[in-house]
Design a protein around this nucleic acid. Structure first.
Lengths: 202, 202
DNA sequence: GCACTTCTGTAGCGATCGCTGCAAAAAGAG
DNA sequence: CTCTTTTTGCAGCGATCGCTACAGAAGTGC
């Protein structure tokens, strides 16, 4: 409701909400949830704080929407990787995607899902728990994919899909920390290659 | 200067500075540098903010001293691990120490060196860079130890010590993130065991 | 006793925090 | 045109931020 073919009712926005959200993603990505102030966010989005609150609710809701956008954008490699035909292909694509996304030039280094709020004050507990769930959900998706690989015979029947998924996600989170520390893309890709040279963790 | 056998000059402290620093370590560990307010720190230390500033300078200096204490305390396993006789022993001890320290009951989960300030606002850039240096220094120590292992014949001559060190530290940082996400000690130890089953990354 | 040094508690500094009230502005509906 | 709806810019809310000035307390050396 509220919309007809003639367009929305009321004064139209002067900014593109999608583009503004993308700027918010970058700001949260670089400075974390609590490290990015509302003034800084609004400035990066090119709008006033009033417009920001009118369009996105409050800071926590804005972060939620930014995380969704991040998941569908820079972090979309995860969903795509799960569709690789083999478990090794899945693991390879996950680590390659992590390396690429966490070391992209002219982008913040690291992973929003990791450095967005790894530790936080009491007021940031909600977002911290949201990111905990985000990371644990990533692990669960990978584990279920590896379980399917075991069921399909792609992985040996004695394989522990949970252990394998923990291995891949631990490497991915570790790569994100290394990227945030300034480690270069090539070195991290070499690491990813070496870590999967022995598969599936025989 | 300033001290003689009769004790220090001036009014003596009513608190134990060492114990107070330990409380500060726990507070920074749990909430991060920017997530821990000076009021919260002073409260956890059992002193007033005035006494805190008189004894430790400012918040950033307090964090520096807390990080030193953390390095010599909960993170001392790293230095000890480097003294293991074999490279595999070093790697095993590092990962076991990481698992133990990041999942200690009644302690904050995770690693202060990782979640202390992975992303930060502009005013926290100093501490963020300090932790970047801390993590990179850990990597360098491990790499040099593995280089020595190559020189001594403990590792095959074609081994890349840097790659191996990157592998171990990446796993350690990843374990710290997993621990901060609530993953249990036993599961992480199983992961550590599995990750070193193929050594040295043949 | 006195002078000197250092620590403690109170009280509050200016700045920033996340967030909002309000009226003018800009659109469609009648 | 008027009425309604939504956005915008401005201004500022109370709360908290890191930090400190100040005076009194508590110890030393003389």
């Amino acid at each position: 409701m509220g919309r007809k073919q003639g367009g929305p009712i009321g004064r139209p926005r002067k900014f593109d909400a999608d583009e503004a959200l993308e700027r918010a993603v970058l700001t949260f990505w670089e400075h974390g949830y609590e490290g990015a102030s509302t003034a800084q966010l609004a400035d990066a989005m090119g709008i006033s704080t009033t417009s920001m609150y009118a369009a996105f609710g409050n800071k926590e809701e804005l972060f939620c929407k930014a995380l969704e956008r991040y998941t569908e954008g820079p972090s979309a490699y995860l969903t795509q990787a799960l569709e690789e035909p083999t478990a090794l292909g899945v693991a390879t694509a996950i680590l390659a995607g992590t390396v690429r996304t966490t070391t992209r030039p002219a982008h913040p280094h690291g992973c929003l899902g990791v450095q967005g709020a790894l530790a936080a004050s009491d007021s940031g507990r909600g977002v911290r728990d949201l990111l905990v769930a985000w990371r644990n959900n990533s692990y669960s998706c990978v584990r279920e994919r590896f379980q399917r690989a075991v069921d399909d015979g792609d992985l040996p029947p004695e394989t522990d899909p949970g252990l394998l998924a923990r291995y891949v996600t631990t490497l991915a989170f570790g790569i994100a920390v290394q990227a945030a520390s300034g480690v270069g893309r090539d070195e991290l890709q070499e690491l990813a290659d070496a870590a999967l040279r022995n598969w599936p963790l025989s």
